[in-house]
Every structure is written in C-alpha cells, then in structure tokens.
C-alpha cells in the first residue's frame, strides 16, 4: 500500500520532548524527542535493552518521565495510565495481557470503559439509559471485532483463542477506547509470516481510520514495509529518525545492530590470519563456529 507517503503532514498528535527516564543511577532513556502526526505510522526500533519499552511506558503514564514532557494534542499527559487512555492514547502489551477468563466480547467491552459513563447506580436501577448505553457499547464492540476478524468468536473465552487472534483481540480492545494514537508493543512477536502480513494490513486499516500508530518491533521487514517514519533508539538515545530508506542505509544503525567495526577496519591479511588460525585449531576448540559443519 502507500508506504512512502512520508509527509502526510497532519496535526501533531504526540509530541515528546526531551524525555529522560532514570532508575536510580541508570538512565534508561536520555533526552528523546519524538513527534507523531495524525495519519502517520511511526516505527520505533532498537536493539534489546535500548529503552524502547521504557519510552513506551513514559508515553502511557506507567512511568513519569524524570525530565521532559509528553504532550498529546497539545496538552501535557496526566501521570496515571487510565487518564492517558481517557485522553486518547491506547496501547497493547509486548507479552499479551488479555483478561484471560473473560469472553472476547467482554474484553472489548472493558476497552469501552472510558467512553461510557454508566456507574453503579445506573447498573443497579437499570433505567432505559443503561440499556441504551449497554446496547450501544455492544454494537460498537461487535463492529470492532468484525474489523479485526473475530466477530464469530465473540463468546469464546480469551484464553482459548490461538496466539495470533489474541494479538488481534488486544488491538481491538485498545481500539475500543477510541484512541487518537495507538501504541503497539511488538505486535508481531511470535507470529508466522502470514500472520505478520495480516497484522500489517490491519495496521494500515487502522491508520486509514485516522488513528496515528506508533509501533515497536524487531521484525525489520515489517517495520520498513509499514512505517512512514522510523526512529532508532540505541542505549536510551535517539540515533536517527527518518524514512525507511534513510534508516536502512545509515551506517550507525547497522553498527548498532551488528556491532561496531574495529577502529580502522581489519585488513584482509588480518582476516586471513584469523581464518588460518581457526582452521588449524582442533575442531572442538572453535566454539561459536557451529555453522562450519
């Protein structure tokens, strides 16, 4: 689809400025800026331990940034995760966190919590308003299940769904809060190529609904297919930000993933020397070269 519509310059939805997160002496995220505009899919990549999830948690109110601020549509985010959701940022989790013993439909209905107002009294008295709101919620939830393709499993327990569908349900549940920005934390982790492909289509469809998407992922092909912009986080700092081609071609990114080349790249003769030494050594003394056999 439209992978290189890099400049759909909508309004800025998310504006993180100078976000720094320290845990005691450890600085997990240092001075990161990130903007997400409406109608955009932005990817956040980085090696393990780069601080991606910490940064995510700063965006969703789970952590309060030590320095810097995060604005959603111009207002500073409140420091509680349920208030962040109410403001319009919804998220999924890296390790699926569904309400396992609730049905698929109920999971999505829980996602509607911030967009409905019926309190305890309304539930106890069951006036016409209650029934109307319940019916509307159910209808909306079924629409969302239809959207992710789980409508026929509405009454199943969430725990009984296969893995890929649990991921989809998590997305549907997040969408139920009618967010302006959706944060996906490794949405394709553990998926096979077909499922990854389907998730890609789903994310495009979400973008087409006018919801901005920020996605953390390890699957590079997925990210570069999907995202209008990609930001690379290394050791808590933003290394580079740009479109797929820019990021893919950047040496520092390759270095961050594959390791720094030596100071003054190793000459050919040095490499040959090493190879010769390894070849002459007995085979059991060459750990880490299991590809030889």
């Amino acid at each position: 689809m439209t992978t290189d519509t890099t400049t759909v310059t909508g309004t800025t939805v998310l504006d993180a400025r100078g976000v720094t997160m320290r845990f005691g002496g450890l600085t997990a995220v240092r001075n990161v800026d990130l903007q997400v505009n409406s109608g955009e899919i932005v990817g956040l990549i980085g090696p393990n331990g780069a601080g991606k999830t910490t940064f995510f948690n700063c965006l969703t109110g789970l952590y309060i940034p030590t320095e810097g601020e995060v604005r959603y549509k111009g207002t500073v985010l409140p420091p509680k995760s349920f208030k962040v959701t109410a403001a319009g940022i919804a998220r999924t989790f890296q390790n699926i966190r569904l309400f396992a013993n609730m049905t698929v439909l109920e999971n999505v209905l829980v996602g509607r919590h911030t967009r409905t107002k019926e309190g305890l009294w309304s539930a106890l008295l069951r006036g016409p308003g209650f029934h109307k709101a319940e019916a509307a919620s159910r209808e909306r939830a079924m629409e969302l299940l239809d959207f992710v393709g789980l409508a026929n499993k509405a009454e199943h327990l969430a725990r009984n769904l296969p893995y890929g569908e649990q991921r989809k349900l998590e997305i549907a549940r997040a969408l139920a809060s009618e967010p302006g920005l959706l944060l996906l934390d490794e949405p394709t982790a553990g998926m096979n190529p077909q499922e990854t492909r389907a998730t890609e289509e789903l994310v495009f469809a979400i973008r087409d609904k006018g919801i901005a998407v920020l996605v953390i992922e390890h699957d590079m092909r997925f990210i570069f297919n999907l995202c209008d912009r990609v930001a690379v986080l290394v050791q808590g700092e933003k290394l580079i930000e740009g479109d797929s081609a820019t990021v893919q071609g950047d040496e520092r990114v390759i270095a961050a993933y594959l390791g720094e080349p030596f100071e003054g790249t190793p000459g050919d003769e040095e490499a040959a020397e090493v190879e010769a030494a390894e070849a002459s050594a007995p085979s059991d003394a060459t750990p880490g070269k299991e590809n030889d056999r």
């Binding site: 959701t85 966190r97 309400f99 109920e106 829980v110 919590h113």
Partner: peptide, 16 residues
C-alpha cells in the same frame, strides 16, 4: 473482573 484478571492491563484500558 478486569481488575481481578490483570490490574495493569485494566488500568491501561482506562479503568480508574
């Protein structure tokens, strides 16, 4: 029930 099942996820779904 959502809080009983997973409090962190419930908070992230906007439940106070």
């Amino acid at each position: 029930i959502a809080i009983r099942e997973d409090e962190t996820a419930a908070l992230a779904m906007g439940i106070n």
